[in-house]
Design a protein around this nucleic acid. Structure first.
Lengths: 196, 196
DNA sequence: CGAAATCTCTAGTGGTCGCTACAGAAAGGA
DNA sequence: TCCTTTCTGTAGCGACCACTAGAGATTTCG
């Protein structure tokens, strides 16, 4: 009698709904995506959405987690797997050119663009912290290379990390302005010429 | 009797109002800035705003023109005044570090950030075209240097222009994420190392 | 079989959005 | 002075926002 699931079962796939919500938020951003947009693209009514996800904010939080695990962690993976910071950044920039322009989903990076120009400071701050956390990852990987002599000891790790982040954010913006994968790859290649 | 100005005179300074509106749009973006925000920060009521500027969209258009002439044309000026594309880009990136973090106004570039995540495709398109026009300016300046032998004849002008644009957009975003002028100057310096 | 639980939808809630009808105020022209 | 013109604020328009009360549908448990 401890078997769960009393009551009427949910009539839709929660994960598939999260996926539709992710696409909507990714395309139009947090604030410009209305509950009506979400219910329409998921194919359920508002009370079902609220029963399953709480409210718009909590749904977005879940979407961010799914996004991070599916599209957002390629930077972290590269930083962990590649032998040097330079190799990691090279891989990250090339993969960004590919992912940001993949026609299977909206262009650019959702963490970079979805909370720009929102009236909800909390949402903006949450994504800002994710971006800054990525900067810290870059920086510590650079410092590791400085410690092992791969990078000069007088390297400004913080500035170099910020440069990589700025190029990534710029590439995300450019992809949303219509840049192709090839164009972004050329940007990535050019950007790497500045690496010490 | 042909002398103009019949009727009750306007009770506020139209240019000063445009200035307040620019600050508001710059800070929060086009869509997230409501008419109530605008009337509150200007200090007039809605009908006065509509009588003076038409509607929200036309007001924004005027703001974009004012912004362009006051803060947005430093790139065009540098491209026209500096002897080489490289010198121009160097000056542009350094000035961007300064302007984007000037505490006298909101951070970053309004043309880059104000129309992200808006439901009005027209406004988004208008600013996108301004950004792409800037890219074309960069590209033609680069081509001029290629013609005079300052840059190698096999330079990918389009890609190089896009690289400069991406760095600029990245710097704008970083400034809105809290980067300081010094940090952006370090990014600019690093970015210039990739110049051919 | 009921009873309890949990989902479903319809049909709203109050609030804010961009925008405006309208009447009074303040100017010039005759 | 009175008329016309143009600006002023109050007050409110319909549309949309995020969100939910409430009733019915569909399931498991006893």
């Amino acid at each position: 009698m401890v078997t769960g699931q009393r009551g009427r079962p949910r009539s839709f796939d929660r994960d598939a709904a999260l996926d539709k919500a992710m696409t909507a938020f990714w395309q139009r951003g947090y604030e410009a995506t209305s509950i009506a947009d979400l219910t329409a693209s998921i194919g359920i009514s508002a009370p079902s959405l609220y029963a399953a996800f709480g409210d718009k904010r909590k749904l977005f939080d879940e979407v961010v987690v799914v996004y991070g695990s599916r599209y957002g962690d390629f930077a972290g993976v590269a930083l962990a797997e590649e032998p040097t910071a330079r190799a990691a950044v090279e891989r990250i920039l090339r993969e960004a050119a590919e992912v940001y322009t993949d026609p299977a989903h909206p262009p650019g990076c959702m963490v970079i663009s979805a909370a720009i120009n929102t009236t909800s400071d909390e949402v903006a701050q949450a994504l800002r912290e994710r971006r800054n956390a990525n900067l810290v990852l870059f920086e510590s990987r650079i410092r590791a290379d400085m410690a092992t002599g791969v990078l000069p000891a007088d390297t400004d790790a913080r500035a170099l990390a910020r440069y990589a982040g700025a190029v990534l954010q710029g590439m995300s913006q450019q992809s949303r302005d219509g840049a192709t994968r090839e164009e972004l790859e050329a940007v990535a290649e050019r950007a790497l010429l500045a690496w010490p």
